[in-house]
Design a binder for these strands. Structure first.
Lengths: 342, 342
DNA sequence: TTAGGTTGTGCAATCGTTTGCATGATTTGG
DNA sequence: CCAAATCATGCAAACGATTGCACAACCTAA
């Protein structure tokens, strides 16, 4: 267990002061050094295999070169590509990422924010933000850069990267409309998540635009983005509104749950009820009937978020506060024209 | 951007020395403090909302309370549950996890090990180890605790948690044998990964045990655990050995690739060729024909690995160097009796 | 009563870097 | 040829916590 090399060791070997070594090894040091000494030091450092201790440096500079990444749950297929996008973008700049799972539990989220702060993260990227998120609000107040991915906060000062939920919903609605559907239900996401809220709003708006009658009672809010919730809501919605011919779900998991719900009522997808999702999870290609959905850019959302954070960390000219990534309608087998009722 | 509270601030507020505060807040401090002072300090600290700066503490104690987790690629469905198992187990003990993706590229792995070392991780859990891994070997030499999950290293001093690959292969082989298969091929994993090597060895051994004729030429080594490789190897193997009726693939991805390969030759799964995988990825339930495979415990492997690391970090009595988790045969639709050739 | 033992707290060094300032060496210009 | 400017390097103080040691106050026992 040989001790870690320090600046002091290099300094001794190169017969200079530690501060000189520090400067020689710092590419953008303000103080000037002679080429000769600088090179000698670099050579010695490399020979000895010197590696800086970022903890010590972090203590002095108050920069840990780490960022916190908060997600609800890494085992949810939506998040790994986002996390990968973040890591791939940040790593070349020397930032390491600390990953934490909040399970969408507010207290847990608050505790994990503390954990990250104690470790002196330079910034935080959250994919787990609630519309009204006290923890995030506090971070902002403390001046710690925060980026919210996939979701938005109600407070408008938090930079975000989201998908174009609005356009996505309109595309789905138009698809239904073109097929001939007129009674369309919506299984919405949780009210406290921006994705749920934005998509529900887009749904209402879209219905109106297509001249569909009041659709407020055709929206059913789920409590969580989970299959079981999708099933429960679908059953309840179809019980109350048996004339529905199409079901627009706020995400894929709700849609897969809707499949079960529809079948439990003795109906078929899509012959009796057309179903759509949102996100385009990788599994979908293989679950029959293959789900018609909206594809969002997952890796890219992480990438864009990381860039936004880098910009904030480098104190750069503050770019746009929000980035909206384009989406794409993916038509598969879960949608068809309604049974003719003529 | 109000400054972070430090021990000094608390000390001033409680009118004691910083060292006293440090001791009061350290649950297992060796020095004794009067109840009264200790409580007063705790109250003041809580009131002020003091949070220790782990960076500073880490510098002094040489413990960062972070661990590095190295995986090939978080977007591979095998890894998220493992990572979650690690994080869930470590977090309650105050450890944060830094996640890095190696993409199975050795140079990248070496660089990332440096990144982790610079950050002073207290230990490393790798799910990306090669059988012969110079980076890991160096860590061991430096006395940094390392645990290898899912894979083993050839050097025997690295504690590991693996699944019972051996039993898993025997179960699959017995399953084939019971169905009546006698010409069984094996698409093996890469030679430099222990999973590939162990499974191939178990295959050979199992063939012999069942009295099957020399099977060495029925093993085909893939270069990577990827679908495309599975397809390529399957096609080549079946070209050379057209009498094969069953294909045992070293993991699920190779098996899914095998599906394509078999179909490209105009054959059907399982009627013409039975296929099996390994791991039981979540997608499998939905890809027809549903793959017969061996289920490994993913979350548990992370959990067990984390426990092993905790043990190593607490310098505890060194427990077993290896943990082998039980596996389970999952029979689905990709296997059936061979066509009768009577 | 006093020597010796506790007990509770403060002092100061330390961890490995970074960085403002001081200082000695060298160059420049008049 | 000397004063002033410039350059290269060293010095030492941070950063915020931990911890061995010193020391004062108190307690106990002979």
């Amino acid at each position: 267990m040989n001790k870690r090399l320090t600046l002091k060791d290099v300094a001794k070997a190169a017969d200079v002061h530690v501060s000189t070594v520090s400067r020689a090894l710092d590419p953008n040091s303000s103080t000037s050094l002679s080429e000769e000494v600088s090179n000698r030091i670099k050579v010695v450092a490399k020979e000895l295999g010197y590696r800086p201790n970022r903890i010590a440096a972090g203590l002095r500079t108050n920069k840990s070169m780490t960022v916190g990444v908060m997600i609800p749950d890494i085992t949810n297929t939506l998040f790994p590509p986002i996390v990968r996008g973040i890591e791939s973008t940040l790593e070349p700049f020397g930032y390491a990422t600390i990953l934490v799972n909040t399970d969408n539990i507010p207290e847990r989220e608050l505790r994990l924010i503390e954990v990250l702060r104690e470790r002196g993260v330079d910034g935080i990227i959250t994919v787990a933000a609630h519309r009204n998120d006290p923890g995030i609000a506090e971070l902002i107040e403390l001046g710690i850069p925060v980026i919210s991915l996939n979701r938005r906060l109600d407070i408008s000062t938090v930079p975000y990267v989201i998908n174009d939920d609005n356009v996505g919903m309109k595309l789905l609605l138009k698809h239904f409309f073109d097929l001939g559907h007129r009674r369309i239900g919506h299984i919405a996401g949780p009210r406290d998540l921006s994705t749920g809220q934005i998509r529900a709003a887009a749904f209402s708006e879209g219905c109106k635009a297509h001249g569909l009658p009041d659709c407020a009672d055709l929206i059913y809010y789920s409590d969580r983005f989970e299959e079981a919730e999708g099933e429960r809501c679908t059953v309840e919605l179809l019980r109350t509104n048996p004339d529905i011919t199409a079901l627009l779900c706020a995400n894929d998991r709700l849609a897969i749950g809707a499949y079960s719900g529809i079948r439990s009522l003795g109906l078929r997808v899509p012959e009796d009820i057309s179903v759509t999702g949102f996100n385009d999870s990788p599994i979908l290609e293989s679950i029959p009937p293959r789900l018609t959905t909206v594809r969002i850019q997952k890796f890219e959302i992480g990438q864009a978020g990381a860039k936004l954070l880098l910009n904030a960390l480098q104190g750069g000219a503050k770019g746009p506060i929000g980035t909206v990534l384009p989406v794409e309608l993916i038509i598969r087998d879960s949608t068809c024209a309604p049974r003719s009722e003529s």
